[in-house]
Design a protein around this nucleic acid. Sequence first.
DNA 1: GATGAATGAGTGTTCATTCAT
DNA 2: AATGAATGAACACTCATTCAT
Lengths: 211, 211, 211, 211
Amino acid sequence: MDSNRSRPNRQRSALEPQRSRGKLRVASLMEAAAAVIAERGFESATMAEIAARAGSQIGSLYRFFPNKEVLADALIQRYGELINEAFGKIEGRATVLSVYELADSLVDFLVELHGESRAIIALMEARSEWSIKRAAFRNAALHRIAQILMRCSPLLRPETAEAIAVIVLHNMKTMKALTLEQGIATSPGATTELREMNRLYLASKLSEKRP
Amino acid sequence: MDSNRSRPNRQRSALEPQRSRGKLRVASLMEAAAAVIAERGFESATMAEIAARAGSQIGSLYRFFPNKEVLADALIQRYGELINEAFGKIEGRATVLSVYELADSLVDFLVELHGESRAIIALMEARSEWSIKRAAFRNAALHRIAQILMRCSPLLRPETAEAIAVIVLHNMKTMKALTLEQGIATSPGATTELREMNRLYLASKLSEKRP
Amino acid sequence: MDSNRSRPNRQRSALEPQRSRGKLRVASLMEAAAAVIAERGFESATMAEIAARAGSQIGSLYRFFPNKEVLADALIQRYGELINEAFGKIEGRATVLSVYELADSLVDFLVELHGESRAIIALMEARSEWSIKRAAFRNAALHRIAQILMRCSPLLRPETAEAIAVIVLHNMKTMKALTLEQGIATSPGATTELREMNRLYLASKLSEKRP
Amino acid sequence: MDSNRSRPNRQRSALEPQRSRGKLRVASLMEAAAAVIAERGFESATMAEIAARAGSQIGSLYRFFPNKEVLADALIQRYGELINEAFGKIEGRATVLSVYELADSLVDFLVELHGESRAIIALMEARSEWSIKRAAFRNAALHRIAQILMRCSPLLRPETAEAIAVIVLHNMKTMKALTLEQGIATSPGATTELREMNRLYLASKLSEKRP
DNA sequence: GATGAATGAGTGTTCATTCAT
DNA sequence: AATGAATGAACACTCATTCAT
């Protein structure tokens, strides 16, 4: 069954707190949410644990985030902003980077974004029917990647760029997953291999179209 | 009634049905489980829904699978057997296939395996601490892939083969995911791109070492 | 939804209610628990019936007592406090009472303690492996009794006092049981007989050692 | 709730098996039942475990004992016969035993009856509303004890004898309980003390009335 | 606005009992 | 007669969400 166990409040947006007290609280709430979701996954994360880890009470949590879904959306949105910035930096340097450097920047992108990235992956893995925002997030990321690719290699057709972006995004996630489970099970050379594959691939797609 | 109510039955394996009636039921139960888990993910899949979808009663489900974990393990094991067979076929032809053909056989591997594959992916995505069997499954797949690679390119060092296998397995999963969400969101060229990346990568890793 | 569903909350102590509303509820919950357990025994008592009898919802019960075991422990602990007080009174008068009076005070001890005593006996009869608190309760009672005996008869060796205490405690429980089933089956003279046996026994153990 | 979970078969008596095969099976079933009930208590003992421990199938168990209650009754009845015999022996020697010897014979009675005695105690401790047979068993034991006492001390009034019997029966159970938990928690001198109390008591009740 | 108590449907699991083969 | 599969109500426990203070 899905998570809307009972009497869900369908009001869609997180309350904007007016005072800095409230802003602090919201920040610690979101941090806690990210941590708990990263540890347990979206479904297993409980609102009670999130509140407790933030040193708040369940009532406070619900004051700012009227339900779990909204909380997830807020997390995604915040992360989206971070990601946008980070993509912006890469995009700015797209023309001065070698193809290999660009490939590496992309594949290490999620890894270098510390903080809540694990939570976001957990969120994106959760059943995607749940939130349109999740799909939007994915599409935004895809677009940014495509744009970077096209800036690097202007002759690329947009549809091709999108298709490549899908692959690159997958590689990014794989790299993140690999570094998360590092030392546990995976052979240590895997990240090197992934980086190599990604370089090879992007080189073949971008170099030829480069001016 | 008694306090054992709360200790789940830790008996570790699924009951082998003794009668044809039971065998049929077990089959339909596993099919239903695969369907429900594929739809909702492991955690959201409820035992009640699985039983209902199999046209059984909850008690019947628990007769054969003493808990949800065992049910998941059984699914994984059965799928593991299918996969083993299929890997066997590829391995047999490893020396006669071109590198590109081999690369394509591998990326398309999961896609061509119909049946419960989606459920199995959902299962593997579920927190992996949960079951040793899950890790074992992954390792087995990794080994098979590494062996195929080494058969194709005998000079490959085993550790390198394992590292490549990790990447190839990820590509296989990505391909499966791509075909599952086909038409929903992803640009249609993505599968072509993935196939291309995989070819490029394996060609670079295998060709040079080929006798 | 998540697999944690089946692992019971192992948090070991009852929540202390913070508001007067909660305190009232906890009191009525414990009262109801005592009643239901007294009627049906620990295992047959259901959390649902306890909640219902307290006019609460199952969720409220679990808010304060995270599992059945903790509820039982809380009952035992509360009763333990009552018992401690009562033992204190007897101990204070141990030196001024005649042996017969002391003997009678002890056998009638549990009988005179009304309230949840029946539930507590049911609890103590439940498999004792279940809770260390249960064993601790028993040992505490034994110690108190032994101390009373030694105060009354200072030359008694501690080990002997402990051994006598075991017997006296059994007599106390027997008396309680006898009065509970009074009129149902037992011959009415039994309580008189028990009192007599207990007097005889304690007189023989204590008198000779009296200063 | 009580144990009649669903569609109980109210037919009251255990089927008498005609062939020795059947008798053997019934015997092993009862033995298994006694063992499991002794270990877990009546409520926690499951019909499935009983069948399994007897090397039978649940269906076989239900063939001979149409429900759990009947099984318990059969156990009690069989034990009643054993007890009757044993009481008979004591009764036969009542006039030649010293009072102390008689007291010891009685208090050690249950202890010396090995086998299922623990199961029977578990059964008798189970809520007594459940079976009239259980009350009957208790009354029979009480009667036998009273008779022994009266044979030993013929001037005893029957009502007094019954009242004493109640006490003696409790002592018997206490002794059994003490030996069962021996070494676990109880001070080792307790059994000696119990024996002494019982002697003292019976000596005072019987000696004076002896011819 | 913060707190924490209340709600109750839902979840995994058990087990006495029945019944078809 | 024996086997083992089927039934389903009951149980302990969880958690998103609401609400009174």
